[in-house]
Design a protein around this nucleic acid. Structure first.
Lengths: 240, 240
DNA sequence: CGCGATTTTGAGCCATGTCAATCGGAGTGG
DNA sequence: CCACTCCGATTGACATGGCTCAAAATCGCG
């Protein structure tokens, strides 16, 4: 039920829908979430654990597109395979099939769930853009910080952050595969952050020691909506 | 009508829906496609010209998330602004509002359009993953080639490629903003490709001289679905 | 206690960025 | 038709961030 709450459902709706979520699937770290059998698209929800959306290249290198935390929806299309996009558990993982929830009889609960799912998917999409920017325009140092801050914020929303500290099961290799760096360089970057006293990262736990300064590091991508930057204004000259 | 065809509609459906597409908006290169007035999400279609989905950073740097070609759907949410994600015309651009098409009375036409839109959006999403991989795991040389090949294939689908040659309005700076490189380095990369006789790019036109070799360059991301690579198998050990 | 997975270190290299200048073509006004 | 301007493409010199390779040190776990 707590898992359902995390999707963005009210506690009431979550309680009512809970019976439908009996069918939790479990995965071990390193296994792939099974794609749909038929031609149809499949929907599921992460209840506990971490997973990622990734692609594996022929030469063995990997690119992680996104991390999936409790409450995140999973969408798997029939075409999604190893070479395209697969969902892989990074820890022990609990997932429930969203099919029954979407077909729930009670209109209001179904509506609520549908709405929650839609906004969650929308936010997932936004995160892809953030990630694109991270890979395209940020420095290694900034990429790592930016990723950690994203994860902090997402975990915070589902109540898994306590005084800037949270459980962190990612391997340095996972981070590297996400932010497009080599493991060695991720390691050096983390060491620098430690040395500077900005964060503490070790044995499955991260603590942000100076959150404000960390945010300032990647703050270059914050634009005050009320006052578009001069550069932007230059680029977007109005039609004359 | 040709524009509508490009969305993936049959010629018949396109003809029937054409009257609804009278309200074409026109934009000049460099202007932003206007976001929705209200709280609602807005849907539109590119009829002619090129646009891009981008974000502008406070320091003036940009990241292009995707290029939009004729037939591509545009989705603009209320939250999308300069600092987040904006749609900017790269050439003269014609766009029609998809609202009326989605509300068309005739069921079958509406269905057809809805289906076309859905699959187009799905493919757009897939392209984001390709782009993520491009930025995260490919070399400068490969990134440029991979991007050009994507554009070639998309243009080919809408009949704008003739013997491996197509109109190409992108500036080297646009390419740089897309693939996350500096303009200077994009320039050098293109020169190398020219020198090697792989492609001809100049004055708004690209010709792929050796398509097969170009594809081979980025072929590292092709995995035969029937035979997952050994590396993948290693990573995805089944539960014991 | 020992093994595989992960993290850490060091050395050296090269891909890519930065800065700054030049060049070329298209439009524009005189 | 010419001088001027502006934008995009091009070049060279130089700096450096991040990669590779290879080895060692640690950690987690059975």
């Amino acid at each position: 039920v707590t898992g359902l709450c995390r999707v963005g459902l009210s506690a009431q709706d979550a309680v009512r829908l809970a019976p439908l979520a009996r069918t939790a699937e479990r995965y071990v770290a390193g296994t792939e979430v099974t794609p749909p059998r038929a031609e149809t698209r499949r929907w599921a929800l992460v209840i506990s654990g971490w997973a990622c959306e990734m692609r594996i290249l022929a030469d063995g290198r990997r690119q992680i597109f996104s991390f999936l935390l409790p409450g995140d929806p999973i969408e798997i299309a029939p075409g999604d395979q190893l070479g395209r996009r697969s969902i892989v558990a990074l820890t022990r993982l609990e997932v429930i099939d969203a099919g029954p929830l979407l077909k729930e009889d009670a209109i209001s609960e179904r509506r609520a769930f549908h709405a929650a799912l839609t906004t969650a998917l929308e936010r997932q999409r936004e995160r892809l853009f953030d990630h694109l920017l991270r890979l395209g325009r940020l420095t290694a140092y900034q990429r790592v910080v930016d990723l950690l801050l994203e994860l902090r914020d997402r975990l915070d929303e589902i109540g898994l952050v306590k005084s800037e500290s949270f459980h962190f099961p990612l391997t340095q290799e996972n981070i590297a595969d996400s932010v497009g760096l080599s493991v060695v360089h991720v390691n050096r970057t983390l060491q620098q952050l430690r040395r500077e006293g900005l964060l503490d990262i070790r044995s499955g736990r991260v603590t942000l020691l100076k959150p404000a300064q960390l945010r300032a590091l990647t703050g270059c991508n914050e634009v005050t909506a009320t006052e578009p930057s001069k550069a932007a204004a230059t680029f977007l000259q109005e039609e004359t």
